[in-house]
Design a protein around this nucleic acid. Structure first.
Lengths: 156, 156
DNA sequence: GTCACTTGATTGACACGTCAATTATGGCAT
DNA sequence: ATGCCATAATTGACGTGTCAATCAAGTGAC
């Protein structure tokens, strides 16, 4: 079929590059702000957010990975770094000796809470405030259309 | 001023996360495809694209960095790896003894040309084809509004 | 000419991500 | 209970990204 061989037009390609480069710029800007405001990377923030919302501020390592959509090994490496800094701790799992419970330390909770307000405000400043309500809604629809298309393509 | 202290609503935050996670998923999917199709990372592709479009298939290192919007040190590290694989070569600059001319090797040009069609088609498949023409236009407007807002905030 | 200052580029240290092994336990069939 | 496979998590190797420090060569003041 000849559709599979067609290439994007110049305009389509320009929009693609705009889209992906802009998202990248936002990610890196917010990451840098988070880092200088609180000493957290955006990975740290993601992990701390999930733990702070969890029952008893702790999760099985695999549950945490599923929750935030990370590969297990990526999480393992990241937890190692966070453990060294005292943000989280690993404890044995009572119901499965292979398992690890990841618990949010008091220090980790404090750092996260201090970082949260500023980080959310930064998101508003660089993302929400940049768009009209219509554009914001459109951004949501675009993202969800892309997501649906992507996951549909992967499974069948 | 109280505006600076406001935090995004639940909906705004959901859209933000959708937006950024989707962009991330697309980037990683296209990166993986490029890697398995041609053995190139998306960084490699970016560099090769710029060089292949340059006069004489070569650029000063700093011009290349400016063109693709990378920090100099990032580019330096990346060029080191690409040079080891024979995709590019570094030559002395005739007009400025500090400078380095980065030249696309024949091997690099071949790999790039072979990768290009499939990569562009992949972009069409995962991005362009997922959106209606209206959504595509909206994505472009959103990106450009975000970009303007971001660069405006940085300079003043 | 030489001193200070800038500019072009690289380097080293370290955080981050991915992939392919590896380790250890759980659980089941026989 | 043994053997075999699946699962939980970690590890090692390696590519990638950032920051601060470095080094060498241009540039201008004097």
């Amino acid at each position: 079929m000849s559709t599979t061989r067609r290439v994007p037009t110049r305009d389509e390609l320009r929009i693609w590059r705009d889209y992906i480069e802009t998202a990248d710029a936002l990610r890196s800007m917010l990451g840098a702000r988070l880092q200088s405001d609180s000493g957290l990377s955006s990975g740290d923030y993601t992990v701390l957010l999930a733990l702070s919302e969890a029952d008893g501020r702790q999760l099985r390592s695999s549950a945490l990975a599923a929750q935030i959509g990370w590969e297990r090994s990526r999480l393992s490496h990241h937890l190692g770094r966070m453990e060294r800094r005292g943000l989280i701790a690993r404890e044995d799992c009572p119901t499965d000796n292979r398992g690890a419970e990841i618990v949010l330390t008091a220090a980790g909770a404090t750092v996260f809470e201090d970082s949260n307000g500023p980080h959310l405000r930064a998101i508003r400043e660089v993302f929400v405030d940049a768009l009209t309500p219509e554009q914001l809604a459109a951004a949501g629809e675009v993202a969800s259309a892309l997501r649906v298309h992507l996951t549909d393509r992967d499974l069948p």
